[in-house]
Write a protein that binds this DNA or RNA. Structure first.
Lengths: 338, 338
DNA sequence: CTGTTAGCGCCTTCAG
DNA sequence: CTGAAGGCGCTAACAG
């Protein structure tokens, strides 16, 4: 079977490859009659241009890369939706890479991507990442990058984030106003600025309401969730005075539920819980989980739009193009217990 | 800044491009000494091969495409995890495309992919797809395809599915054994074989237990979830005798919960609900949701492995390579009400 | 073991 | 308006 490419089409039409190429790209220097003939045959032969030949020649891949820790997480799944949507509208393809929060894997992925496979990169950094040399080196390769959610403060580029400080403040204030006086804060211990902002919001809210800052109430979770369950159990047993929990990530909020069930501490009567979460079913939990929910889809879409704009114009992405979107606090109460 | 490519490396090392290429690919026909020199300079210059030039030349892209309806769905998110894992281990990249269950978009995506951008395709077909010409035409382009979950019966290739018939049977039997006698079945109305199998399992379980088949108890949901809520409400009001609901998709199970809450029908005392779902928090729902859970990660990984094996060997994927994995039924009871 | 040569399919000057 | 020619970066013959 002879391959369908510009050459075979040109031969069959008795014209040059150049003319066929121009006709298919709708160049203004080709007559309408020729265009019609070319398009007809191309359609009949189901011609599809070879993307790699085009990429090689034009040094443009029409592809962006998305590097995230995981996708089995409602936040990132929604973000990808937004990214894919923006990319599709702009005629771009989306390559996806998962780091599983593994620094070595992140470095390896980024390194590979410098080979010109992508025109730009969207990234949410792995939680263990401390050295950003691999990311900075993208600049030399002229690959623009936009961070979303888990940003990297050291790299001068656009970032799409949410108002994490304010959300942390609001979540804490929500618990205070509900009567809590001994509020624990659960976060994943790492150097991500996102967690630091939420923590600061928590601290400032406590201070603003005249509540003491008790370091013993701040629990630094780890990657392994089984361990976290143990740590939370330990904390709740050691400090029976805890009457509120603000979890910085969904998984810790869910684990808190499990531990409370196990220890017979009733939610929300004995202890109130609020957590960052994009869990759709939060309202149906027993009891419903109050959440701070990030606009994940919009975050992904905005990040992609900023990146694609830069890629199209072949200009660098500037930190000044950063966007901060707002999370929404859903204070949910059990229908049964009011 | 001069580009870093084989040519520039070769010039600096005073050797031919071919030798540099061979050295970097660890060819056995290059001396160790040369390899060492080449590798040293390549590392120093941060050389990364141009993937597209290589793809063009070798007619191999080391990339697979994944076409799914959506990713904001725990099943597909987990499946992607498995796919990415298998792909990474085999040195492949993953392009992702979302159809949003839109037939036209599916056709357009598949058409584009015939341009050689991918070496193979993993697909879960859009629910509205009835004409499979676009998929069949992939064979002419020599692009192997493996279906997972939502398969296309008309195309002769490998499919990775779960035991949907058995799961439907078990789910229904579970309700029967819990005392239900008027069991409704909610499914999304389309021509996907997956739903048909589950429905048949439901029907056969009813028959096996001597329960009548009442067509009025089978609700065909639609794409829009608001409408489904209305349809479910209507059904439960029209048939107050319904004491069990078997939902074929997660969303319909969740909607059933909402409607029951609204109508004051207590779960599980008045009505028991079981649904296909990969919702992690199902056990924490109020009351907990009994589920049939598919091994989503394994499905994705298996599908990718079958595809990659074929791609590597440049052989067609055979229907005989199909795999059926087993779903798990989680019968959950409220801790409060036993 | 190394170099030379000839493309992969496409785009883009430069000539007509 | 159309054609001829060169080359993007890399690889795979074929020579030495």
């Amino acid at each position: 079977m002879t391959p369908v490419n510009l050459k075979s089409l040109a031969e069959e039409l008795n014209m040059s490859i150049a003319t066929v190429s121009r006709a298919l790209r709708d160049s203004h220097e080709v007559s309408e009659a020729t265009k019609t003939r070319v398009r007809a045959l191309a359609a009949a032969r189901h011609y599809e241009p070879n993307a790699y030949a085009s990429s090689l020649r034009r040094n443009i891949s029409k592809t962006i890369g998305v590097v995230i820790p995981k996708v089995a997480n409602h936040f990132f799944a929604l973000a990808i939706n937004g990214i894919e949507e923006a990319a599709r509208l702009a005629g771009y393809h989306v390559l996806i890479y998962l780091t599983h929060d593994d620094y070595a894997r992140e470095v390896s992925i980024v390194q590979h991507l410098k080979g010109g496979r992508v025109d730009g990169l969207l990234m949410s950094v792995a939680s263990g990442t401390e050295d950003f040399a691999h990311i900075k080196s993208l600049r030399e390769a002229n690959i623009p990058i936009v961070f979303f959610d888990r940003v990297c403060a050291e790299v001068a580029t656009a970032k799409v984030t949410t108002n994490d400080y304010e959300s942390g403040y609001q979540a804490t204030e929500h618990l205070i106003q509900a009567g809590c006086r001994h509020i624990a804060h659960l976060l994943i211990s790492n150097n991500l600025s996102i967690g630091q902002f939420r923590l600061q919001g928590y601290l400032d809210a406590l201070a603003a309401h005249g509540l003491p800052h008790d370091p013993d109430l701040i629990l630094h979770g780890v990657m392994d969730n089984q361990q976290n369950v143990g740590l939370i159990r330990e904390l709740l047993l050691r400090r029976p005075d805890i009457d509120g929990v603000f979890a910085s990530v969904e998984r810790l909020a869910i684990s808190t539920y499990h531990v409370c069930n196990e220890l017979g501490r009733r939610i929300p009567q004995d202890i109130k819980v609020i957590g960052f979460s994009n869990l759709e079913a939060a309202a149906l939990l027993d009891p419903p989980l109050s959440t701070i929910t990030q606009p994940a889809y919009d975050i992904g879409r905005e990040a992609a739009k900023i990146l694609l704009r830069a890629v199209e114009k072949k200009k660098a992405v500037l930190p000044s193009q950063s966007v901060v979107l707002e999370s929404t606090l859903f204070a949910r109460q059990s229908t049964a217990q009011g």
